[in-house]
Write a protein that binds this DNA or RNA. Structure first.
Lengths: 280, 280
DNA sequence: GAGTGGTCTAGACCACCAC
DNA sequence: TGGTGGTCTAGACCACTCA
């Protein structure tokens, strides 16, 4: 039974191999299958939200047993690359659906809030990256970056503060409060054509726009969190006093093959929200 | 082959069932096995760091196939309850070993540091809990809590600041800097006998003491993170100006069966450290 | 060499879903 | 009713560890 299992010879597949990154030679079959499936995702064989081939089909294609394909898919589901749905099939994960929307945003209202967050775009422009940004995003020499700035605003919880801000110094947005000031840097090459108008027109999560229009799927991210004092500009935008403590969240996001494709720095006002984390 | 698989009848085991929490009646076999294994851990059949029975033995004990036991153990390994080691066996996870020590501490030096963190116990006393603490820890009415306070200190990075703090206002600890001020609340019933002396004498991670001496294993935790301004006492202890931004990390830790057993509030000075997080 | 977990297969049946 | 993933089994061989 085990005779036909190849150790040196890699699995033969019909899909032509992609040019970049060679696969490790000796690894378990299911790992090889997993790598091949990741390549298929990377190459766009199946789009986010679509069903991939069934386990049976994949087993036939790769000439392995269904159990081996299953183990590969199990791991990819654990990595949030795929979503299994009994009776329906296995689907490419997406930032489109409720529940997986804003998967990376860990900011939560202290008391459960009905309404979500509103977005307000501040600016979007192309620029030469600073040295730090260029290194983190592994940019080619001379490659520009797109810089995006925006606010996220939450419905104000006025249930017990009705009297307090009767004389608020703001004329509009009495019922809404800025909570997050985001600053993003995106590699110019991958996001050619992204503009303020495009962002303005888009309804929905930004990561959904990226995967739908620019074929850039955010897979995982690393965040570094600090407490900082609000500077003058930040204070004005977030409507807090200068020097107020803010959460600084620096995020580096990766797509398939651990390629960094977004650097983001968020300043969170944690007066009525907190950053939640689960340690396991 | 499938005939002997029981759906209504649960698996018969030799270990007497523990009194608390009834198992759900209808669930996959491997889930039942998992629940039984968790109970064995809870009951102390195998101690942290020790090997559990082999897959073969467990399969025989529970009268299921090895594959079913394997799936149960796989999930428990993914939950960090067990650790598999090829050729050696499967071991109960512990906070003792390097690598799993300080598993829940996400604070990281901005630039890789050689030395770890020093501990300094401030105080440890029994007290009546506030209402919030009592609720979070699900305390019995009238049950006291142990309150512990301590500092974590890091070796100062003096490589480029030699001249700066020549006239530091502190007489001792020139080469060390407080980074974390921790305040813990522990249910008195579970930690009877814990004292300042006991903590002072202990070398190693606190969670290791808890699992070794009080049979309380921390399995997972939830953290809420905010940015706050340092108050007078906190500022003095952490040697920062009053009002300096600090990271407030509120942690609720759970043991087997999702029982909360520790509430902790840490204030982190993130001048040369940050809280790292991986989003997947 | 004996024992452990790790991989792979083949086949059966179940639960769920859509048509 | 047919197809999907989900569970369970039985048995083979491999890789690793330790005495």
């Amino acid at each position: 039974m085990q005779d036909n299992v190849v150790m040196p010879a890699p699995v033969v597949v019909s899909t032509p191999p992609l040019p970049d990154q060679a696969a490790p030679s000796f690894s378990p079959l299911y790992q090889q299958i997993k790598a091949l499936l990741v390549r298929s995702l990377q190459a766009g064989e199946w789009q986010p939200g679509q069903a991939i081939a069934s386990e049976q089909e994949l087993a036939a294609r790769f000439k392995v047993s269904q159990g081996t394909v299953r183990k590969a898919i199990d791991e990819m589901a654990a990595d949030n690359l795929l979503v299994r749905r009994q009776g329906r099939g296995t689907f490419v994960a997406t930032h489109a659906e409720a529940g997986t929307q804003y998967r990376f945003l860990r900011l939560t209202p202290d008391r459960p809030a009905a309404a979500g967050l509103q977005r307000r775009l501040l600016d979007c422009r192309s620029m030469r990256p600073g040295a730090d940004v260029a290194i983190l995003l592994a940019l080619a020499p001379g490659e520009p970056v797109l810089q995006v700035r925006r606010l996220l605003l939450a419905a104000e919880d006025t249930s017990m503060f009705n009297a307090m801000n009767a004389t608020s110094d703001t004329t509009d947005d009495e019922t809404v409060r800025p909570v997050v000031l985001d600053e993003l840097w995106l590699p110019g090459a991958a996001f050619k054509g992204l503009s303020a108008e495009r962002l303005q027109a888009w309804q929905g999560p930004m990561y959904r726009l990226f995967e739908a229009e620019f074929a850039v799927r955010m897979i995982r991210a690393e965040e570094k969190i600090r407490a900082v004092a609000a500077g003058p500009d930040e204070a004005a935008l977030l409507r807090v006093p200068v020097g107020a403590p803010l959460l600084s969240v620096e995020r580096l996001s990766f797509t398939y093959g651990d390629r960094p494709v977004e650097l983001r720095r968020g300043l969170y006002h944690t007066g009525a929200h907190h950053y939640r984390n689960e340690l396991i």
